[in-house]
């Protein structure tokens, strides 16, 4: 590591933190302008003015917005996400378990989808404009065009109900053995893989094809190298930055966009949790979920930038 890279990386991390801070303000403001009164919605229409006033006092709703924001932010920094309005439980505790489940599901999907997408991208370049390329493009485009809930139900019907290969409802519980867990999430993982595959595959293909125009690829061809070696050893290393970027966007989508798939398969993750609490207008929970999703996006994009910086030989090995 040289000082230049460290400086750029430090800047990038600092920028991410700043961005996260701004997002936290946005989320807080966003939930403030929602119509309705939290105290009213907790106590219901029949509450007396006195009871409403007491509850507002208790929840700190009478304080000015910036004080409430700072209190909330202070809590978040200490790991205290507040308590749920609807059931009075500690949000951090409730989310912790759910987030773990979601990351497990998204992680499994990523472990399959990322290498597969890059491999298919390489194959597409190798057989550019011939049938394997067209087949891969066609199938992956078809997969991305169909909404994920529809794919979910189709897979559930064939593999869950007709063939009985995997459970159609992905319930996981604490203390479940690892293999059983894997089997339980097989179908949602398959859906997620199909959804994110096309985008990453096509980006890999485009990025490598772009590099294939370079003079150094001609050099490699004139060295008498085989096509696969040219693509893998000479083109791919120079296409890493754009590929990582799109991979990270898709990983972020996996974590955040998993909501629908989780609901379809009744999987106890963040998505289901969020949907439940939005329906009940449980503002602290929505804020916490929003903050977590935003962090995931910012974090993964930061990782993409860092990888792109490190993959650049000019920065890694300055003159």
């Amino acid at each position: 590591m040289n000082p230049l890279i460290l400086k750029i990386l430090a800047q990038r991390v600092a920028l991410s933190l700043l961005l996260l801070f701004l997002v936290s303000i946005l989320i807080f403001l966003g939930t403030q302008i929602l119509p309705g009164d939290v105290a009213q919605s907790i106590l219901g229409r029949s509450a007396t003015p006195q009871a409403l006033e007491n509850l507002r006092q208790e929840l700190g709703l009478n304080q000015p917005a910036h004080t409430r924001y700072l209190n909330w932010l202070g809590g978040v920094l200490r790991g205290d996400l507040g308590t749920s309005l609807t059931n009075g439980r500690d949000i951090a505790q409730a989310i912790g378990q759910r987030l773990g489940n979601t990351l497990f599901l998204a992680g499994c999907a990523a472990i399959i989808a990322v290498p597969l997408a890059i491999f298919l991208g390489l194959i597409s370049v190798l057989y550019r404009n011939r049938w394997p390329d067209k087949l891969i493009s066609g199938l992956s485009l078809a997969a991305i065009s169909v909404p994920e809930f529809l794919i979910g139900y189709v897979l559930m019907f064939y593999f869950g109900v007709m063939l009985g290969w995997a459970p159609s409802v992905s319930m996981v519980t604490e203390g479940m053995p690892f293999l059983a867990r894997l089997q339980a999430i097989a179908l949602p993982v398959a859906v997620l893989v199909l959804v994110v595959l096309a985008h990453m595959m096509r980006m890999t293909r485009a990025a490598i094809l772009n590099v294939m125009q370079s003079a150094y690829i001609e050099t490699a061809e004139l060295k008498g190298l085989g096509m696969f070696r040219i693509i893998w050893r000479h083109a791919f290393p120079n296409a890493i930055a754009p590929v990582v970027n799109v991979v990270m966007l898709n990983l972020a989508y996996l974590v955040v966009g998993v909501v629908v798939v989780e609901v379809v398969f009744v999987y106890p993750g963040m998505g289901q949790f969020l949907v439940d609490h939005v329906a009940k207008r449980d503002v602290p929970v929505v804020q916490a979920c929003g903050l977590i999703f935003a962090s995931v996006y910012i974090l993964l994009n930061m990782v993409a930038d860092i990888v792109a910086i490190i993959a650049n030989p000019r920065l890694r090995h300055p003159k």
């Binding site: 370079s214 003079a215 150094y216 050099t219 004139l222 060295k223 190298l225 000479h234 120079n238």
Partner: peptide, 29 residues
Amino acid sequence: LRRLRGNEVTYVSQSAAASFNPSRRILEQ
């Protein structure tokens, strides 16, 4: 063709700067 190129006949281009892969060491190439 692969046995011919880079083996019996080799090539030096006008722009070495563009003809070297930027992400690999010179000796390796």
